[in-house]
Computed example of a mutant assay.
Amino acid sequence: MSSAKTSVSTVSVFTDFKEITKMGLSLSVVFSSLAGYLLGAETINLITLLLLAIGGYFMVGASNAYNQIIERDLDALMDRTKNRPIPAGRMSVNTAFIIATTFTILGLITLYVINPKTAMWGAISIFLYTSVYTPLKTKTALSVFVGALPGAIPFMLGWVAARNAFGIEPGTLFAIQFFWQFPHFWSIGWFLHEDYKKGGFFMLPTGKPDKGTAVQIIMYSIWTTLVSILPVFGFTGDLKLSIVGAIIVLLLGFVMIFYAFRLFKERSIKAAKQLMLSSVFYITMLQIIYVADKFLS
């Protein structure tokens, strides 16, 4: 009986750990960083790749834990977040803080071993996310613009880890992920609008799921697609994209733009969810295509 209880508690502790660090989101961010590294690496170093994956997970996990500490009272008000470890009472603030600070320290050390610039960008990311973006979410819809800055760093971070330098190439990777976040997060803000309202969050540019928000989503979907094909024109340094690669990326962009227009037309929760899924598909496939294009061209 006691062993059954122990196994249940072990499972629940692991589940809470996954939730406090948002494991799914953290792994997707690590994926972005690794893609950026593969694009920037002249020769692939598996140790660096491993350090980037571990350090990246620590940094994102820390950011998510800090976020849940700061927003614990608001999380308790929303259906989407009320069962998170802290508001549900399964984890104390002190425990979450120990996890967050430990992850921060280990993350910075791990990224510093790669090179100091990678650690610096990791530190900037965690600071912007926890100290600027998180407090702004209940003050202004501009928080999404601020949040897009740390959110755009991982793809770029991988290149910096590979080259120990910042230039046009990581800048382009940053721009792609920066613009992409607006259709992505605004679509989430759209279908979770009523829930976000309970927590007092301002997530949509006009403050509500209306035609104005839908128009901005369309514009940012178009800009994301245009920025994504810039490397085909040859002025992004060592970041290159073949014509075939650019055509595939363009077609993926058209799919996202199609769903953005559908949202404008229908203005429904279903259309917003479809756009969100298409945006996730877009950024994942773009990173795979960029890497495949480099090694196959």
Results as ranks from 00 to 15, higher is better:
K82C: 10
R84N: 08
G61V: 02
L277M: 11
F103K: 09
E169K: 08
L39A: 06
Y133N: 11
D79I: 12
P231M: 00
Y37M: 00
L77Q: 15
G40D: 03
M59K: 03
Y220T: 10
K208R: 12
L38V: 01
S28M: 15
G61C: 02
Q287S: 13
A119W: 01
F182T: 10
Q181P: 03
D79N: 14
G40N: 01
V146S: 12
G237A: 10
I98K: 14
L252W: 03
L157Y: 09
A162I: 00
I44R: 01
L34W: 00
A76D: 06
L263I: 11
L263G: 07
A123Q: 12
V29E: 00
I188V: 11
M156G: 01
G253D: 08
I105R: 09
S26I: 05
I176V: 14
D16H: 10
I188Y: 04
D210H: 07
S143K: 06
G40R: 02
G158E: 00
K208W: 00
G189F: 03
L142D: 12
A4G: 11
S187N: 09
A141W: 13
K197Q: 13
V13P: 02
G207H: 03
A246E: 02
Y112S: 15
Y259T: 05
E42D: 15
E42T: 15
G212C: 04
P154F: 01
I54S: 03
F103P: 13
K211I: 14
K137V: 01
K117Y: 13
F185I: 05
G61D: 03
M256E: 09
I70A: 14
A260K: 07
I47Q: 00
W190Q: 04
A162R: 02
Y282M: 10
K197A: 14
F191N: 09
P170L: 01
T48I: 04
G245D: 11
L173K: 07
M120W: 15
